[in-house]
Design a protein around this nucleic acid. Structure first.
Lengths: 196, 196
DNA sequence: TGAAATTATTGACTTTTGTCAAATTACAGC
DNA sequence: GCTGTAATTTGACAAAAGTCAATAATTTCA
């Protein structure tokens, strides 16, 4: 069977129209600001030190935002799964050099928009500003919960919590990445998994 | 010399008018949604398990949002200093029982607004929505940076970073609170301070 | 499919941080 | 200014997590 050729903007249009009232005309205008990019496994989209130009919407695949510590070890800051927006946020918003890298963990299909256009849309379309605000509120809440887990829980408890809240993530991603998302070494994670 | 009686809404009015164009009428309307509260040192404003009804604006003093871990140890999630908004954010936004407590570290003068009124203002005043959005973006960025420090740095480096970025905080607050903000024990912090 | 590269596991040891207890210091509130 | 409570420091030890190295298991992609 042949694959149907799929409109790469289908998911994005659905994302907008599911969350806010929007005319076809505005929808087309929104989409005109986004460009398509296909990436390979482990392709780096942004290097630390660069100003991050784009916000990404993930059609298929998965993005990972990560940093290197002083000794060159990787630490995962954020993961962006399908049908979601995400980027190296501080660099994008402040338009300052990034502390973080962005890579696609798998071959991915992405839609991306530059900072100027992104601000133009949030500033001029109140309905979209509202949706975006709700997204940021939720992302902020998720990051607060992550801080809580980091300052109050042991590595073992953090792992068990992730296992409860997001079993798919643990199943899907290499444990190396789970470990640096939790802020522990892969050896420690390996031992935690065998111990319970 | 007698103290001048000060309008408790002066700072709040200034906060709004500094950040957005707003008519006197709207300013009065905004302020009508806020009520005044004076607190004692260490007074608890919200207990864990309660739904957090209020967003606070700190006129004078300081608020602390903190949690208890399994063994009853406190961990500071967030501090709200003068002339800023803050609250136990997840519970306020989701209107769910709070994981966190709120207390005033010093005698404080606060203005507070309930959730319904807060949403009413952000939904109906685009200029204010925009200012609020920028605030959340900045708070989110601050929390991302805190996550970075927690997953990539040792206790010692996190302390030195805080010393650089926010020396006032270390000077002003008891080291017990600095320690549980950094996610370490007070004994460890005490040793870090003497070692360098 | 099969060689090369990456990832995961395990062991031995080190370092960091936590815990408990006691002594000292600071300071809030009367 | 006192006085009692709270905060801080220090010591001795325990537990948690990291490091390095070697091996085993999986993937990738040519």
């Amino acid at each position: 069977m042949d694959k149907q050729p799929v409109d790469p903007y289908r998911l994005l249009r659905k994302y907008f129209s599911d969350r806010m009232p929007i005319s076809d005309e505005d929808l087309n205008y929104f989409c005109s600001k986004y460009r398509l990019k296909r990436t390979k496994r482990n392709q780096v989209l942004l290097n630390a030190g660069e100003v991050n130009p784009y916000m990404y919407f993930v059609n298929t695949g998965c993005l990972r935002v990560y940093m290197l510590d002083q000794s060159g070890r990787e630490a995962t800051r954020f993961l962006v799964t399908e049908n979601r927006f995400g980027t190296a946020f501080p660099s994008f918003i402040l338009q300052e050099p990034s502390m973080a890298y962005i890579q696609s963990l798998e071959p991915s299909e992405l839609l991306y928009i530059n900072f100027t256009d992104f601000r133009e849309l949030t500033d001029n379309f109140p309905e979209w500003q509202r949706v975006y605000l709700r997204n940021i509120e939720m992302d902020y809440i998720a990051s607060i919960k992550r801080i809580e887990s980091l300052i109050t829980m042991s590595a073992k408890d953090r792992y068990n919590l992730l296992l409860e809240n997001d079993p798919g993530m643990i199943q899907k991603l290499p444990s190396k990445i789970i470990a640096d998302y939790l802020g522990i070494s892969q050896e420690t994670l390996s031992r935690l998994k065998s111990k319970k």
